[in-house]
């Protein structure tokens, strides 16, 4: 048990594990990204209603899914860091925030670009758009609070609390906003998909590519942060020697 879990507990092993994982993840990422882009942008047929305009779905839907997924992951990491005092979990939580915020921003921008030709307007106060916007504010609040808190130790714990509170509030916000206004088309992915396989498979590939992209960026940021925090330990010197 310990030998397995040490990769998530001890900075040195965590660094080594991410070093081993990175090339594989990059390989799968390139595969899925190139398949998703080529099949989505060239081979998938144009939509019978939206024409070629629908192809922005291959960026929009993965970004929207990742926006939510990253926040959930951060909330799980927050619980782990509060309950078990896992340093790595606190790092995952704090390092994910800018990436998640970027995904949310991308989902908002692509949604707006998609909305202009289809709905005739850049922005509508529709339930889904509004909840994503609020999610963006939750990310901003998390990052703003972190940058305002002076000490490292309290910063991790207090911002973890904010994440958990935000996460509990997400369904409340989601349902209240939905009940307030709805115009958005239904979800693109369901258990009984309403979307043709030739369009669906590239979409799934793009979602995988976005998730892997997140993992890649996170692991690299984690490595940098670990090297910086552990800079006084001998294993960092070994790593630096290997690199140079």
């Amino acid at each position: 048990m310990l030998s397995w879990s040490k990769h998530f507990l001890v900075p040195k092993y965590c660094y080594r594990l991410s070093e081993k994982l990175l090339p594989w993840l990059t390989f799968v990422w390139i595969l899925s990204l190139s398949y998703g882009l080529i099949a989505g942008l060239w081979f998938a047929p144009a939509d019978y209603q939206q024409g070629d305009g629908f192809r922005i779905i291959y960026v929009h839907v993965p970004a929207a899914i990742m926006a939510m997924a990253v926040y959930s992951l951060m909330a799980i990491a927050a619980v782990l860091s509060l309950v078990f005092r896992l340093k790595i979990a606190a790092l995952v939580m704090s390092l994910s925030a800018p990436i998640g915020a970027a995904f949310t921003f991308l989902a908002l921008v692509t949604g707006s670009l998609w909305g202009k030709p289809m709905w005739g307007t850049w922005w509508i106060w529709d339930a889904r758009l509004t909840s994503v916007l609020i999610l963006f504010f939750l990310y901003l609040a998390f990052m703003a609070l972190r940058s305002a808190l002076p000490e490292e130790k309290t910063r991790d714990q207090i911002s973890a609390w904010l994440l958990i509170i935000g996460f509990i509030n997400i369904p409340i916000i989601h349902y209240s906003v939905q009940w307030w206004n709805t115009l958005h088309q239904g979800a693109s992915l369901k258990w009984d998909p309403s979307i043709a396989p030739s369009m669906l498979y590239p979409l799934l590939a793009m979602i995988l590519a976005f998730a892997l992209f997140y993992a890649l960026i996170l692991l690299q940021r984690l490595q940098t942060e670990l090297l910086y925090r552990e800079r006084k330990n001998p294993w960092v010197k070994e790593v630096i020697d290997e690199l140079s």
């Binding site: 609020i134 504010f137 939750l138 901003l140 609040a141 703003a144 609070l145 305002a148 808190l149 002076p150 000490e151 309290t154 207090i158 609390w161 904010l162 509170i165 935000g166 509030n169 409340i172 916000i173 209240s176 906003v177 009940w179 307030w180």
Partner: peptide, 29 residues
Amino acid sequence: LTLRAGQGSALLALILFPLYIPVLILALN
């Protein structure tokens, strides 16, 4: 949450207002 941050109301607004939205929706409806 902002006890140690010492930045006054701007940070607090950023934290609170997203959480206030459901109340606002319910009450105004």
